[in-house]
């Protein structure tokens, strides 16, 4: 039972159109998998299936050896934490309140946080360097700071697995690197299993152990970054010519602009 997440031929369709059409995946414990692929390839849907938000219409998903279809919402929340692309907060909550919300799956019947819940939240904030914002309103923070707060919340959940859906989509390059490095440090130091869907091929290549390339809801290619990021594979998946290069050992991908 060394896989954290295992998906077996999962299928999910929205109103008749298959978004995920028979994907099988095996994420090892403590691993860092990045899901890449063109728009509409099913990355977000797959994340939702892995998190238990959607139940697969065919196939099954196992988290730490247990079928997600049999797990309660709370159990799932204690095992898998999800960091979405963007968050809206309608009401003026402080950072500490937001992070404490991550403790909900652990709370007792009366729903009040205990001492260890507060301690867990503070630790999560320390790890994400957001302790300084604890009493500030989330609405006042910048994009990067807000994303770190959400990661803190996910950490406070105390889950062994973290799923991220395009976590760096709206961040500038510095914050992109910050967030990606943070996640990888958490993976390495705390044994967190990470699955991150990403648009950014370069970032994915730099930080993930394994890349899974999706196309039309199915796995197109899978493996180490250097194996997946080849010009032929990428052209086949994205229908776009690219240059693949290497910079001090770090692979990078650049689209080939026609007529340039």
């Amino acid at each position: 039972m060394s896989s954290a997440i295992r998906a077996e031929k999962v299928v999910f369709s929205y109103e008749g159109k298959p978004a995920v059409a028979g994907v099988s995946l095996d994420v090892p414990r403590g691993g860092f998998v990045s899901l890449i692929g063109p728009n509409g390839s099913g990355k977000t849907t797959l994340i939702r299936l892995l998190s238990g938000y959607f139940r697969p219409q065919e196939g099954k998903v196992e988290i730490l050896g247990r079928d997600t279809a049999r797990m309660s919402r709370r159990e799932m929340a204690r095992t898998v934490a999800v960091v979405p692309q963007e968050t809206t907060v309608t009401f003026p909550f402080t950072v500490e309140e937001i992070v404490l919300m991550g403790r909900f799956p652990h709370l007792g019947p009366y729903g009040f946080e205990g001492e260890n819940d507060v301690a867990a939240a503070r630790e999560a904030m320390r790890l994400t360097d957001t302790l300084a914002f604890a009493s500030r309103y989330v609405q006042d923070l910048s994009g990067g700071e807000r994303q770190r707060v959400i990661i803190a919340r996910a950490l406070a959940q105390g889950a062994a697995i973290m799923l991220l859906d395009e976590p760096t989509a709206f961040l500038d390059i510095r914050h992109q690197v910050e967030v990606a490095a943070l996640v990888r440090d958490l993976q390495r130091e705390r044994g967190l299993t990470v699955v991150a869907a990403s648009h950014d091929l370069n970032l994915a290549a730099a930080f993930a152990d394994t890349l899974v390339l999706l196309k039309d809801g199915a796995v197109f290619a899978e493996g180490r970054p250097s194996a997946v990021l080849t010009e032929d594979v990428l052209a086949g998946a994205y229908d776009q010519e690219v240059y693949v290069g290497d910079c001090h050992g770090q692979p990078f991908v650049v689209p080939r602009f026609r007529g340039a």
Binding site: R73, A77, R78, P84, M101, G102, F104
Partner: peptide
């Protein structure tokens, strides 16, 4: 979605 992911 965020609430559901947190177990609500």
């Amino acid at each position: 979605e965020a609430a559901a992911h947190l177990g609500v």
